[in-house]
Design a protein around this nucleic acid. Structure first.
Lengths: 247, 247
DNA sequence: CTATTGTTAATGGTAAAACCATTATAATGA
DNA sequence: TCATTATAATGGTTTTACCATTAACAATAG
């Protein structure tokens, strides 16, 4: 018996049927992103259902990030672009419920950033390299702009990581990495008061990673990225322990 | 300006407020998994809201896999254990909407299984090793039971992968890997008619991976896992092309 | 003519009351 | 004792009515 991936068929729930029908239309692209579904009262007639039931269906589709509901005239349910924001939210819930810890998330991030750097080293075009070095130049500039520039440095830092994921050429990695970054920041940002030395070391790391990508040194890019991420996590953990001595 | 991770504050939506309040209670553990929320009509009074609005809130919580709604007397909203099933669903949607391809998913899997095997090699206890070898023994048995056993072999194969993820000691990897497996199977199972040689090769691979884990050879375990997964993906892709010649 | 201001109608958000469907439990009967 | 049936708790659905928001248009003032 193959595992069927079926979930227990809840008894007739009309709203679920409505959800399924609309979802199929959206995922199969028969309703394009940006387009609007008919108004609630029209949908009621189309599905031969009450407004309450229909609205329950819309709530689910909205929660799935498939539609976006706007108010007022010309309001209604607009089809959204597919995106991975649900992953970020789910990660956040797993952390919040203490099912996974920040240490787990940080460890996972090491693996992902390592893989991504390796793939980027295999696939980076010369145009990609140019972009990376332009970001690196900006980072270089901010690192020398005193404390004012440090926040900007951190922003560029993250941008470089995201760009490397893009270069890796696998959108799944982009979604995952964005989700991971979102959640790591949400919990670490409060402690984010970096010092001169950290900025310097961070910059050196980034330069070395980008260099390895440029030279298509897969293993080197990967291991450097992993070490870089690990260093960051360790640093943040220390910072956290200082602020919240015994938690 | 720090990135705040805030989303546009939709105007007063009472159901959203209800969702937030209940979600906090659940995620902070003040309502334990398995416990039941009050009946809809009671919740209406507690939140001073109408049943329709309250039900919209429940739909969202249900979609988030935070609660599980049962029918009949003693029915109601039961708090669920935290789990990663939302990830699997989200992955499925990304695939369905062709935002990511199966090749992307397979590539991602390579990275994850590589990391997981490496971590397992670092952390496996002797008890863990024993379990792995007992699974391997079962696989050995099924591989020699003729075509009847082959489906069982595939099941054990997956079980070994999952077990390695557990041994890695990071529950996030377990969730992610389960999600990935779910989705890969959902699309590949139809082609899953393995032959004698594939079973043999598969078995050899598993044995080598487990051996590397036993010997705490981190890099070796990792690279063997990656190659193993890659081989599987290639094989399935071929199979697919045979069945659906030009798609 | 242009800019501001008010009006309007489309559309989502909420409320309340009634009824149906499902199901664990208790009562009943063989 | 065991099977059957009745009961009541609870979610699922419908209907109707009204409120709140907002884009588009019209009216007015300058």
């Amino acid at each position: 018996m193959k595992p069927m991936n079926f979930k227990k068929a809840k008894q007739n729930r009309i709203f679920q049927d409505v959800v399924d029908q609309i979802q199929v239309e959206i995922l199969d692209g028969r309703i394009a992103p940006g387009e609007r579904l008919p108004a609630e009262r029209e949908l009621c007639e189309m599905f031969q259902t009450s407004r309450g039931t229909l609205r329950e269906a819309l709530r689910i589709l909205e929660q799935k990030s498939l539609i976006d509901i706007r108010l007022g005239v010309n309001g209604g349910a607009y089809v959204k672009d597919a995106n991975g924001e649900l992953m970020a939210e789910n990660l956040a819930m797993l952390i919040r419920s203490q099912t996974i810890s920040l240490a787990h998330l940080a460890e996972f991030r090491e693996g992902v950033e390592g893989s991504v750097a390796g793939l980027a080293a295999q696939r980076a075009s010369s145009a990609d390299i140019k972009i990376l070095y332009s970001f690196l130049a900006k980072a270089d500039h901010f690192r020398n702009s005193g404390t004012d520039g440090w926040n900007n440095f951190v922003r560029i830092d993250e941008k470089i990581h995201t760009e490397i994921a893009r270069i890796a050429g696998n959108p799944l990695y982009v979604f995952i990495l964005n989700s991971v970054h979102d959640n790591i920041q949400r919990y670490y940002d409060k402690f984010l008061s970096v010092g001169k030395e950290e900025i310097e070391e961070n910059y050196r790391d980034l330069r070395l990673i980008i260099e390895a990508i440029k030279n298509a040194e897969v293993e080197l890019a990967s291991s450097r990225a992993i070490k870089h991420v690990r260093k960051f996590s360790r640093y943040m953990e220390q910072k956290k322990r200082k602020v919240i001595p015994i938690q």
